[in-house]
Design a protein around this nucleic acid. Sequence first.
RNA 1: GGAGAGGUGGCAGAGUGGUCUAUUGCGGCAGUCUUGAAAACUGUUGAAGGUUACACUUCCGGGGGUUCGAAUCCCUCCCUCUCCGCCA
Length: 423
Amino acid sequence: MLQVAFIRQNIDFVKERLAHRNFRETGLVDDIVRLDDQRKRLQLESDTTQSKINAFSKEIGQLMAKGQKQEAEEKKQEVAMLKTTLTPIAAQLSAVEEELNANLVRLPNLPAAAVPGGVSPEDNTTIREGGDRPTLPKGALAHWDLAKKYNLIDFELGNKITGSGFPVYINKGAKLQRALIQYFLDFNTAAGYTEYQPPILVNEASARGTGQLPDKEGQMYYAAEDNLYLIPTAEVPLTNIYRDEMLKETQLPIRMTAYTPCFRREAGSYGKDVRGLNRLHQFDKVEVVQLVDPAKSYEVLEEMVLHVEKLLQSLDLPYRILRLCGGDMGFTSAMTYDFEVFSAAQEKWLEVSSVSNFETFQTNRMKIRFKDASGKPTLAHSLNGSSLALPRIVACLLENNQAEGFIALPQPLHAYFGAERIG
RNA sequence: GGAGAGGUGGCAGAGUGGUCUAUUGCGGCAGUCUUGAAAACUGUUGAAGGUUACACUUCCGGGGGUUCGAAUCCCUCCCUCUCCGCCA
């Protein structure tokens, strides 16, 4: 979340930036400043009274030690009086603090200066395109048909065992998943990311830390008995590794990668977009996360974009990179690049990665700080990106590389998969 | 699931009702010494709110209570560790 001190010092700027991401409740900003004014006033009143009580209490102790019981009793009466005035002030103060916080968590992050204006995906800016779109053979199939033809994925079986959006990968389909995960992890660790295998259920504090709560409450699967959430992305456990940590400047940058299954309820989505692998409730993803010095975070963002781009190039898929406009960015992001690959049989772009700089939005919630050169505690910047999400990559690999009687695989996968083609 | 122990500042670890604003060590920072570094020695160093800066307030796992006064006593919840049981 945003820092109150920053909001107070930059009221107009904050409103302008919120408007830039098409956030309409700019009145929240005024409410926050007003509530913080109240907070300060009440805090001062409370502190002053408490200070008097502390002083009197000390005197009482000294009087008691000297055996001056009468004077001590008189002081006790005065303290009792002060406490009756303190009680309502304290109650107001905590009410105001609660309301202030409730308003603060509803404010999304501010878009960075380079974020284009706009309200919907049509307003996103294409930064680069790469790779060649294939010419498909006659009678080319969509990936769900190819999955059936080569017995790679059984969607109906998933329906039986769990429900829609939980596919069963079979035989070479299962092995392809394993090959991709292994390849992606190796690609990331070779670039200096440390591999983790984190829990895939997290507690409430972790879900709050990265911003899934309270904003995306209904999107996560929830194990009520134990008050745990199934992760929607490895970003949650990975970033929370450093929650409430005071780091040394020399520890930065921290670079982490992990493979996890991801779980999303996708409440409300239906129709054509959910066909086949396009949108699932459970899917595999390899994630990269960085915690960095604030001065370097945009440099790092570009570096992460190049990293993911190289990975896509190595898979020889046609891709494009979009800089998301203000209105299309996620709640917690200051700047986001989306990666899309072209699904040749469906003839549409599918999002396979999202690389974002959150600046201090997450680290302020999680209190991930480091001591800067002057020894002052400073919030780090957090960034993350998919590298990569599997299902849509698989969809494109199958569709784009289909030939007469087989599906060719890109060179880097040959060793991991143990063959150059499926079929 | 049963029994016991514990949660204190960046880390370790003292502190059972008032002895300044939590002892000490490590780590960090600065200095002395040194060609430089290390070692040694000296000084300094928790976080949040608040202030131009002070003052002042809060924080010893969370919440509540007792008291003039709570890290310390009581209640409650959470978490960790050890042993037993069960078990991949």
